[in-house]
Design a protein around this nucleic acid. Structure first.
Lengths: 160, 160
DNA sequence: GGAATAAAGTTGCTCAGTCAACTATTGCAC
DNA sequence: GTGCAATAGTTGACTGAGCAACTTTATTCC
């Protein structure tokens, strides 16, 4: 994580790509920013609403979907999780009554995850907490006039 | 994750802090950037060197320490992990012969984690992979003239 | 239309991580 | 110096995630 191993100044000419000090600083800042913001945000959400970020995200996706339901696969595309991760997450939410499952009549391979009334209500309650977190731990710490540039840099980092 | 739940345009005046579209975009980009970069980087490191990022990080910290050893607590301060997480990570590395443990003679509560020769060698081998990852998935995707600003924004996000 | 291939979803296994409880040792107060 | 609080580290129980293997159903291709 620190200097020597990343760039040895004055060492031999080197085919290995080493990191410059400012690059290293950027990298560290990137790691720290993620850890910091997500940790704080998730702590609030779990502490106050018993929802992890991933669970919250699934509820949001369902709430936004046409009939408040999504095929597992579509959910998988929206949420950063493996297929089995989705299965289990929806399981968990279902056990708590926040989602349900509905088989698709036309394609018997597919299952819809459905937002229940309780799920909708839970989402409604959790949303202010989450938004306050995003505002407080993310937006508020950024210079408003840097937001645009910052966003573009972040977007450049996401692979295709 | 998408618009309606974050800001309802034209709804009643509202004490709840909602997100503006550009703020939402920034937030999404932040999440995606993290997921993307870490996933790619870690996949390389695990695939080629059987080391997770956290394990790599611990090896680096030890390599940089004075006698290539650190108290568990100091390690804990450097690496984003719980105390027991550190214990177990060092355990795992020790089982693979990459670290050792040494009791402190003056304070019998403390244990030093020590980098072994094998650990040093493994780190040496893994470093190019990691650096290529950081360069390829992070630095290379950023505009050089934005790096400084980007770093400052990231640093602003890390809580004290 | 039948065989091969692909897609959707779940399950078993394992792993890495957390929290809370615990032991052991040291430092501090008075 | 005794007693209490703080510090260092580990352990147990549990959780959330991934991968690989598997079942079932749909699609494609000849």
């Amino acid at each position: 994580m620190t200097e020597q191993l990343y760039s040895r100044p004055g060492s031999r000419p080197d085919r290995r790509p080493r990191l410059q000090p400012n690059e290293l600083r950027a990298w560290k800042a990137f790691l720290n920013a993620q850890a910091s913001v997500l940790r704080e945000l998730e702590a609030d959400l779990v502490g106050q609403e018993r929802l992890t970020l991933a669970e919250y995200d699934v509820l949001v996706q369902l709430a936004l979907a046409p009939r408040q339901e999504l095929r597992m696969t579509d959910l998988w595309e929206q949420v950063r999780l493996s297929r089995s991760g989705i299965t289990r997450l929806v399981d968990r939410l279902a056990r708590r009554g926040l989602t349900g499952r509905r088989p698709c009549p036309t394609d018997r391979r597919v299952t819809y995850a459905v937002l229940t009334a309780a799920g909708r209500e839970r989402l409604r309650r959790a949303t202010p907490t989450h938004l306050q977190g995003v505002r407080g731990y993310f937006i508020a710490r950024l210079e408003p006039d840097q937001l645009e540039r910052f966003t573009r840099s972040l977007e450049a980092l996401a692979s295709r």
